[in-house]
Simulated scan of single mutants.
Amino acid sequence: MGRVYKAEFRHEAVRLALGSGLSRERIAQDLGIGSSTLKTWSREARKADTVKPDATDHAALLRENERLRRENLLLQEERELPKKATQFFASQRS
């Protein structure tokens, strides 16, 4: 059986995961737990609606928004790459 963590520790870990703007992997690493453990705790907290990010921390929300914008741009570029490769190879056959 795995290690048992106190409820306060779990609650704080989930609060950080939901509101800090840092990645779940980074938070888990900093706390010395597995990212899958933190994911499970976060999912359970959302279902129970026991922990929400601190909406008053405007700076954290802005950081999270910027992180999501960068991630969105990266995903859009990754989505376009196969299309460009297909066009390139199609032009090479002609």
Rank of each mutant, 00 (worst) to 15 (best):
Y5H: 08
D57A: 04
K83V: 07
R79L: 12
R67G: 09
T40S: 14
V14H: 02
A13Q: 01
A59G: 09
T50I: 02
R10M: 09
P53F: 00
E64L: 14
L22C: 07
G32S: 00
F89G: 00
G32H: 00
V51P: 01
S94H: 14
L73P: 04
S94M: 12
E71K: 15
Q29F: 06
S91H: 05
P53M: 00
R79H: 12
D57K: 04
E71F: 08
L22A: 08
M1D: 07
A55C: 11
K39N: 09
G32Q: 01
L61M: 14
S42Q: 03
E80W: 02
D57V: 07
E77A: 15
T86R: 09
R26K: 08
V51R: 00
D54C: 03
L38A: 09
L75T: 11
L73Q: 13
S23M: 03
I33G: 06
T86C: 07
L16C: 04
K83Q: 08
Q76H: 13
G2K: 14
L81T: 09
L31G: 02
G19L: 02
A90H: 08
G19E: 00
R63L: 07
S20Q: 10
P53D: 01
E64M: 13
S23P: 01
K52Q: 11
F9N: 06
V4Y: 03
K6S: 13
K52G: 04
L75E: 12
A90C: 09
L62H: 14
S42V: 06
L81F: 13
L74K: 12
P82V: 06
D57G: 03
N65G: 10
W41G: 03
G34P: 02
V51I: 03
L61Q: 15
R63S: 09
L38K: 08
R46E: 08
S36K: 07
A60G: 03
F89S: 04
R26Q: 13
E71G: 12
A13W: 05
A55F: 11
R93V: 15
E8Y: 00
L73A: 13
G32M: 08
A90S: 12
E44H: 06
G21S: 05
G19M: 04
I27H: 01
N65F: 13
T50M: 01
H58L: 14
A90I: 09
A55M: 10
Y5D: 00
R63W: 10
T86Y: 12
V4K: 12
A90D: 08
T56V: 10
A7L: 08
R10T: 08
E64S: 15
T40F: 14
E8K: 05
D30P: 02
R3Q: 06
D57I: 04
T40R: 14
T86H: 12
R15E: 03
R24E: 14
L31S: 00
L16K: 02
A7V: 11
E64H: 11
R43D: 03
A7Q: 13
D30V: 04
D57F: 05
R15P: 06
I27R: 03
R24A: 15
D57W: 02
L16P: 00
D30K: 08
L18T: 06
R15K: 05
K6N: 04
F88C: 03
Q29A: 15
